[in-house]
Design a protein around this nucleic acid. Structure first.
Lengths: 339, 339
DNA sequence: CTGAAAGCGCTTACAG
DNA sequence: CTGAAAGCGCTTACAG
């Protein structure tokens, strides 16, 4: 561990010929403690000169508080607008004097790391970034009363209110688009992980189809992921594309979207393309490449800001204001229509 | 700030009828302190049951240490294999019991945030992730003796040894490729930011050309970025492509690479493509899209691990072992040769 | 308006 | 083999 002898309040007090208490009052601008203006200025000047900042550990211990929050981003670093979300969180936390600590990925089913961080007073709560509807098991957190906030396509949620519907709404927009343009043969490409299927998006799509386009011809094509190998996805995709005719592909995440587009383009490059394609992910990349992949826009920055505020409210046991977010379907080149 | 009354060593001591000191010895497995096996087991069991972990602030204060390191990723979230680098750092830090704290981006020229974190004993040093040869001004860190490690295409560096040459070497590979295949008309597309040009990559390319392909016809095309607007890049790119004939484009980063490819493909889709194209960035995306963009492979995970170890050595003032990394040129579809 | 002193939870040199 | 006590740097109730 690092040893670096710092300047303490005592040093400042000595140099300014006041007590440690007065230094604390001035530096923290403590209410109800009036210090003569001369002393105040002298103390502030000295603190600035000597780079004095109150020792965070001492403060935390004395006040019996913790002003860090853990961040878990389950494989989302390379995905979506992770940076935007993070910037949003960071902004709210900076304003509140909170600090963000990176926790590991999800390869820790018992949440040992979270428990250790929480009970050693290293973090006061956890923010998850979990797009692509990863299923987060929050039971350990609930049992241990560890505050958490969850950021996903659906918006921001916690254990105080129901998951929101941002994603459900934009799925409905996608299905409406299919309906309005008579793209009736719809294929949803998704994954299972070691045989385990994630139902979240499928259920929403299914519901939207039932409500908005019951006469459509819908199928789900599942690629099973075992070794995190692209071929596990592209081989069944290519086979399906070769042997079946359909109107529009819907892909479940950015990676699937890119691979689908790869398969389609290899079969022949043409715009408008067949089949059409919507990728249910939000990422600048999808829109930067050519042809632009029709995909989602999720207010990631705003969601980050709100998640941080929600987290703070949970920690301080303050009233919570529920907020909703809307996703948008962005039409790129892959949903370009024939004239 | 959060108030959560935790279990302390005192509680464990009371429950096991031993002193606080003994609890500390057992929990920390302190050397040279032999505790009877019965008591040891009892204490460990109780600690586990009650979720006791030593308060990190108290420990840090008592030991006059700091076991957090700050992480700065200047706009690299959405770029390159940020996740891989981070996983590498995290791995080394977990093993060493260190914690990773997220700092803000670069919009803080005076490094106020770092100073505050450092002098309040919140971090013991800083790791920068700075790809795309962003220029990092480390003067404030040097003056304040704040340990830092820098992760970039060139490898990992600090103030104890010269920047490494991983990137220089791979640039030479690119130029050799041009030479061997008589791609003599080489155009390098890069940016300036508000008129300020970054020379790093250019200098390396220029040097490699001079050494390996002096008879080539080389030009640099600079797009000035002011509003972070894609058109600032695509408009000059398209104009150049329309009015000039050349053999190979080299783009300076992922964003430029995607936009260049976009412009080329809009002019007509064909493989092998003209002009050829190498993007000087490392990212799974570049290889996932079609046509695959010939680009770099940088050992990001390994560099993250090493940066963390280097950081720890700097903090502990231990001897430093310099390590080198190699980048690879990965040929995708955009350097496919005519038969 | 200002200061002396207690105490947050821990580790560790010291005493027994 | 085990414990009593000091002290890390801070804030804050209390006294003056």
């Amino acid at each position: 561990m690092s040893r670096h002898q710092g300047i303490t309040a005592k040093d400042i007090a000595l140099a300014c010929d006041v007590s440690q208490a007065t230094v604390s009052y001035v530096v923290n601008n403590t209410e109800g403690k009036r210090v003569s203006e001369a002393k105040r200025q002298q103390i502030l000047k000295m603190a600035e000169e000597l780079n004095y900042f109150p020792n965070r550990s001492a403060k935390s211990m004395r006040q019996q508080t913790c002003s860090s929050v853990g961040l878990i981003c389950g494989n989302n670093y390379d995905n979506t607008g992770f940076g935007d979300t993070l910037r949003g969180i960071k902004k709210s936390f900076d304003e509140a004097g909170y600090t963000l600590t990176i926790l590991s990925d999800f390869n820790d089913p018992e949440r040992k790391e979270i428990l250790r961080y929480f009970y050693s007073n290293s973090i006061a709560g956890v923010i998850y970034i979990a797009f692509d509807t990863q299923v987060i098991d929050t039971s350990v957190l609930d049992v241990n009363h560890i505050p958490y906030a969850l950021i996903s396509e659906n918006g921001v949620s916690c254990n105080r209110f129901e998951p929101q519907k941002a994603f459900e709404n934009v799925i409905r927009d996608c299905i409406s688009f299919c309906h309005d343009n008579r793209l009736s043969r719809i294929r949803y490409f998704t994954r299972s992980i070691n045989g385990r299927i994630l139902h979240n998006k499928y259920d929403l799509i299914y519901k939207a189809l039932h409500d908005l386009y019951p006469e459509s011809d819908f199928q789900r094509i599942i690629c099973d992921i075992r070794k995190k190998n692209d071929e596990e996805i592209t081989v069944p995709m290519e086979r399906y594309l070769k042997n079946h005719d359909f109107d529009i592909a819907i892909t479940a995440n950015q990676h699937f979207g890119l691979l689908m587009q790869n398969c389609i383009l290899k079969n022949g490059f043409a715009l408008p393309q067949r089949p059409k394609h919507i990728c249910l992910a939000s990422s600048p990349f999808l829109l930067t490449i050519y042809p632009q992949i029709s995909s989602l826009k999720i207010p990631l920055y705003e969601m980050g800001c709100y998640a941080a505020e929600l987290m703070l409210a949970l920690i301080h046991e303050e009233p919570i204001e529920e907020r909703h977010f809307e996703c948008q379907l962005i039409h790129g080149d892959t949903t370009l229509l024939e004239d």
